[in-house]
């Protein structure tokens, strides 16, 4: 028996969420006394694959095939289910990333497995029963889900499990799946990736702004603050609804739910729907000129003041701090 972890690559590189899922799967393998096998699909150099050993994988299955260059959930699902069977995996772990959300249900269906998506902690294991805590009601609550099927699939939320280096090493084996042409009916036409931008769900620091900024032309001060912090930028729903910022930046109950180490909210009053999307952030800073803004009630630190004065000063102070 083994634990299988799927590691997603972005143009041949593994990002933090890949090491997070390997660390997470390793912790399960240690508890159940199984070995950990990682599987990678697509063009990844051996040098990158062997890095996975340092997070606890003892074996890495490498699937390389021209047809699998781009992610297609149906095809990747078939491959991962096949690998899970050949490795006799009792748990399959992957990231609850945008692609993972389309992939995990397919793997689970093929394996008659229960799927816990959006896991935020390690499972509590007793025999064949796993209990998992996951965020529910858009972070307004947590639910404990019980999985009792023989095989289980767990999709782990980005930024919810700490990467742990084990100092181990892994053997790399090539894995040749049987490909079903019927699985390739989705054709990838174009991939646009802003390489200089930090992905919002994975960001450790998020600088977010709302209607208090008065208009899209004023976002320069937000971007400057984000840049000095190495942060992703985000916004409230009214801002994306007004097309001041793209929908992909909308954080909240009906947008993206984030859990960064630091969330800085500028000119956002703190409607319950917005708070639902940010409440699992470790530290929240609120800058708002209205001392009655509800956001202050859930913040760790606050400044009552005009964003147009406070934000540039904060950016300067951070620059000074970074250079000291």
């Amino acid at each position: 028996m083994s634990i299988l972890v799927y590691v997603e690559n972005i143009e041949g590189d593994f990002k933090k969420s890949a090491f997070e899922v390997v660390s997470y799967a390793k912790a399960i393998a240690d508890q159940t006394g199984d070995s950990l096998t990682a599987i990678s699909i697509g063009q990844v150099a051996d040098e990158n694959l062997s890095k996975l050993g340092n997070y606890g994988a003892s074996k890495v299955l490498n699937v390389q095939n021209e047809q699998l260059k781009n992610f297609v959930n149906k095809a990747y699902g078939s491959i991962l289910a096949e690998a899970a069977k050949s490795e006799q995996a009792k748990v399959v772990v992957l990231s609850n990333s945008f692609s993972g959300k389309g992939l995990a249900p397919r793997i689970a269906t093929k394996l008659n497995a229960a799927l816990a998506d959006g896991a935020i902690e390690l499972p509590e294991i007793s025999g064949d029963t796993f209990k998992l805590k996951k965020s529910a009601f858009s972070s307004k609550a947590f639910a404990t889900e019980e999985l009792t099927t023989a095989v289980k699939v767990i999709a782990v939320n980005p930024n919810s499990y700490e990467v742990k280096e084990t100092g181990g090493s892994a053997t790399i084996e090539s894995f040749t799946p049987s490909l079903n042409q019927d699985d390739f009916s989705v054709i990838v036409k174009e991939i646009v990736r802003a390489t200089d931008k930090i992905s919002l769900p994975e960001a450790e620091i998020v600088v977010s702004a709302g209607r208090g900024l008065k208009g899209p032309e004023n976002w320069g001060i937000i971007e400057e603050l984000a840049e000095v912090l190495g942060a992703a930028t985000a916004c409230s729903k009214p801002v994306s609804d007004a097309d001041w910022r793209p929908h992909s930046e909308h954080v909240g109950q009906t947008g993206i739910v984030v859990s960064p180490n630091l969330y800085i909210a500028i000119g956002i009053s703190g409607a319950i729907q917005h708070l639902a999307g940010v409440s699992s952030s470790k530290t929240i800073v609120v800058i708002n000129k209205d001392p009655e803004a509800p956001f202050f009630k859930v913040a760790d630190y606050g400044i009552v003041g005009d964003a147009f004065e406070v934000v540039p000063k904060l950016t300067e102070a951070l620059k000074k701090f970074k250079n000291s």
């Binding site: 805590k133 947590f142 639910a143 889900e145 409440s279 400044i303 009552v304 904060l314």
Partner: peptide, 30 residues
Amino acid sequence: LSKITGYESPTPRGAVTLVDAGNVDELVNL
């Protein structure tokens, strides 16, 4: 295949620490 056995509400944060708008260095320090 799965069932929810219990719920928890998030633990509330402590009271906010307010920093004076003229003293952003204090925020950086905190």
